[in-house]
Amino acid sequence: MRTAKVCIIGDFAVGKTSTVARFAKNEFSPKYLTTVGVKIDTKEIETSRGRMKLIIWDVAGTDRLAEIEFAYLRGSAGIIIVADGTRAPTVDSALRLKADVFDQYGKLPIVAMLNKSDLSQLWEIDDDILATSKAEGLDWIRCSAKSGDNVAKAIEALAEAIMSLSADPT
């Protein structure tokens, strides 16, 4: 079975950890996040190219990654980037983060999750923002860590992308 390292990044309080908690097998206590700055969880996924295991690095971070957090991204096969649909600035942060990561580690498969879709009355992201963002390379999937909507789907899409890339590296 293929294993792959993926990192989940995003601005402060966008729901990275709860997104992972929704989806993956908890291996370590959340206190690692505040102590070491990263927490590892795993998840086995069935893809069209076979079964794979994602090693998910939940990197504690804000709109800019510190040096150590950046180091955690080394060797990643893919990136999960999360923003908060009720706070438009987190989308901008995500764009900056993506640019930083690509600068450092090259163009990696990436999935962009716009979290908190359950809070529709507080929603701040309109189609314009989404379109601009898509033009810059982030095609957001609306999802909710609370209800679980689209979370599995988004991460499975990333797994597919990683598998197809390794099968056909061009």
């Binding site: 294993t3 390292k5 097998k25 291996e27 370590f28 690692y32 070491v36 700055g37 990263v38 590892i40 969880d41 795993t42 295991k53 090693i55 690095w57 150590i68 180091a71 955690y72």
Partner: peptide
């Protein structure tokens, strides 16, 4: 614990 997770966490702690 999951050996893959242990391996990753050790690497993370080492980086840390």
């Amino acid at each position: 614990k999951d050996e893959d997770a242990v391996s990753a966490m050790f690497t993370a702690i080492q980086d840390f």
